[in-house]
Nucleic acid binder design. Structure first.
Length: 641
DNA sequence: ATAGGGTTAG
């Protein structure tokens, strides 16, 4: 009797298949899942899967998830391909998110797009999980616009969709867009959760948007989601990066539970705010609480040593790093190379560099940056060529740190070489890169080439730095009028000049002797743009007015300065006095210069020259004696002047 | 059962 019932059901199952019997399917599912969890390796898991008497889409999904969780993403894709070719086991709303995650992680954009087509065809494209994973995939492949399209077309946007957009924009370097999404989210009353907070706060931090950051903090407290280490860590980081070290510390102190990230973020905050000592002190406190520093912590501590130029402490840390077996960590290696180059010990950096694995870009970038920093331009270029020989692909960071070396070299044929390389790899025209090229060509003396590069940048992408560079380039070669016309064009293009632009423009006037133009510019700067002039602006103006022979006016300008005039300002005046043989004002300037920079023999030389040109030989001789004494004592190259 | 999440360096 009992047996015949069982037999009946068995037959029925065989006829209908498992799909019609959710209870039996779910038993199989749970059973297989728990068996998978006991597997030691993917091979064993696969054997288990192959032995299943009856497969189904959910079981395929389980096996694929096992693969992705055990770092075998390609095996997961292989299974997905099997599903597609089979007629029995079609991918479903659980399969596609898995596949999109793999495509995103591996940046398999072509595969991803193909699967996207398939998902449209299958109809699962309306599933929210599928849509959200699609957005995430496009974002991690750098296809921001496609991701945005999927998002905009979604009818049932969920909190996850919004969060994905925010973190996607941010990780693609578009912090502003991330914040715009956040604003829209608030406007439309979507609400926020912990994931929103940890996605939006880094964007606030990178833009130093304290106002928005505070708003997020307020929302966190109001919603009561501040009881998470993640959330609090990102708050600490945001306040620190916005320069509010006090508030960062307050959030940090309030925390009941702190992990290594909390401590590291706090240390990084101190370093950023120029307080290396507090950062190092925090390291001790952290260890007293029983938290071990990780490689990021160590990198942060090393940057504290760099910012305080504390080579000795850096060396101590290096010792500790070796004892803790952290020395082969890529982040730590990179930071150590950075430490030694910034402390002018290129020898030690190179020794470390030869030991690192050359497979990662970090150490290459660090050593090239370091060589450029130490004005070893030729070595930097050689290192770059070595990098190409070793089949390492440079990125934007590499080139941005390398290009200033070419400006130092001021070698036109080398400049043309790197320019054509940049075009070949598709990095030119691109604003930051092109701006560097403009600087390089200007310093090589080839203003035509600089102008060519400048013209290639679309008008809306020319930023304040681009304009300032082309202005400075023309200024340094005495083409004051052209420089000023660029300045006017910039203003017309709707870009607000900043203090750097004004410095370039004023220097251009000064080199070309455009007195009235310079004064007009200075007035525009103060009155129209409400820019507070800095001492280097004043030194340009003084130089300009002084060279024109209007020495009294220059002297009056200095006396009326709201800031304390520095050596450059007085030096400009003294230089002008020499040209126009004005001893009276020259002596005033020299008196102060001898006080503020007693070791600069240049000032004494100028003064002695001034006395000599007006025939005051005795005074000239007196100053010459001082030069000789100082020269012998202090500056070895002095006799050559 | 599935989708989104923090700290460093370059």
């Amino acid at each position: 009797m009992n047996g015949s019932v069982k037999a009946f059901y068995k037959t029925k199952n065989l006829i209908n298949g498992f799909k019609q019997h959710p209870t039996i399917t779910s038993i199989n599912f749970k059973n297989f899942n728990s068996k998978l969890n006991l597997c030691d390796n993917p091979i064993e898991a696969r054997q288990l899967f192959d032995k299943l008497p009856q497969k189904s889409s959910p079981l395929y999904n389980l096996m694929m998830r096992y693969y992705t969780q055990n770092q075998q993403p390609y095996q997961a894709l292989q299974l997905f391909a099997e599903m597609l070719t089979s007629t029995k086991y079609q991918p479903d709303n659980f399969t596609f998110p898995l596949v999109f995650k793999v495509c995103g992680d591996l940046s398999l954009i072509k595969t991803g797009k193909m699967v996207h087509c398939r998902v449209v065809y299958s109809g699962y494209v309306w599933n929210e999980y599928v849509q959200n994973s699609l957005i995430a995939m496009y974002m991690s492949c750098g296809e921001v616009e496609v991701g945005r399209k999927v998002f905009e077309r979604m009818l049932g946007k969920t909190l996850v969709s919004w969060n994905t957009m925010i973190s996607g924009y941010f990780s693609n370097g578009r912090a502003k867009d991330a914040l715009m999404v956040f604003d829209r989210m608030i406007d439309e009353g979507v609400g926020i959760d912990r994931a929103t907070v940890v996605s939006v706060l880094p964007a606030c931090a990178s833009l130093k948007d304290l106002q928005r950051g505070r708003l997020v903090h307020e929302l966190v407290e109001r919603k009561g989601i501040g009881n998470s280490v993640f959330v609090r860590n990102s708050l600490v980081d945001m306040y620190a990066k916005c320069g509010c070290i006090g508030e960062a510390k307050a959030v940090f102190d309030e925390m009941v539970e702190r992990d290594v990230v909390s401590w590291t973020a706090m240390m990084g905050g101190y370093v950023l705010n120029g307080d290396a000592r507090s950062a190092l002190a925090l390291c001790l406190a952290m260890q007293l609480e029983g938290i071990r520093p990780n490689s990021v912590t160590v990198a942060t501590l090393l940057s504290a040593c760099i910012s305080s130029s504390d080579l000795n402490r850096g060396k101590c840390l290096h010792g500790w790093i070796i004892r803790s077996k952290l020395e082969s960590d890529i982040i730590v290696e990179t930071s150590l190379i950075d430490l030694y180059t910034k402390c002018n010990r290129v020898d030690l950096s190179l020794r470390l560099f030869t030991k690192t694995s050359k497979q990662r870009i970090g150490p290459w970038n660090a050593i090239i940056t370091g060589l450029v920093h130490n004005k070893l331009a030729i070595k930097a270029v050689e290192m770059f060529k070595q990098m190409l020989v070793e089949m390492m692909e440079p990125n934007g960071v590499t080139l941005m740190s390398l290009l200033p070396a070419y400006a130092d070299l001021a070698d036109l044929s080398m400049a043309k070489n790197i320019h054509s390389y940049l075009v070949k790899i598709g990095l030119c025209p691109r604003t930051e890169i092109s701006t560097n090229l403009i600087d390089i060509y200007s310093k090589c003396g080839s203003l035509e080439s600089a102008h060519e590069v400048f013209k290639e940048i679309p008008i809306q992408e020319k930023d304040i730095i681009t304009w300032s560079t082309i202005i400075a380039g023309h200024g340094m070669h005495g083409h004051g009028e052209v420089a000023i016309s660029f300045f006017d064009q910039m203003v017309q293009a709707g870009i607000r000049p900043n203090d750097v632009t004004f410095t370039s423009a004023l220097q251009a006037c000064s080199h070309a002797g455009l007195v009235d133009e310079g004064l007009r510019l200075f007035k525009t700067m103060v009155v129209d743009h409400q820019e507070t002039p800095r001492t280097d602006h004043y030194s340009c103006i003084i130089d300009l007015v002084g060279r024109a022979g209007r020495l009294k006016e220059a002297y009056e300008l200095i006396k009326a300065m709201p800031l304390k005039p520095n050596h450059a300002v007085w030096g400009a005046l003294l230089g002008a006095c020499v040209i126009h043989q004005n001893v009276e004002i020259g002596e005033e300037a020299a008196k102060i210069l001898f006080e503020v920079e007693p070791d600069n023999t240049g000032n004494y030389i100028l003064m002695s020259k001034l006395y000599a040109t007006v025939g005051r030989w005795e005074d000239a001789e007196k100053v010459r004696i001082i030069i000789r004494d100082k020269g012998l004592r202090k500056i070895p190259g002095c006799s050559s002047v």
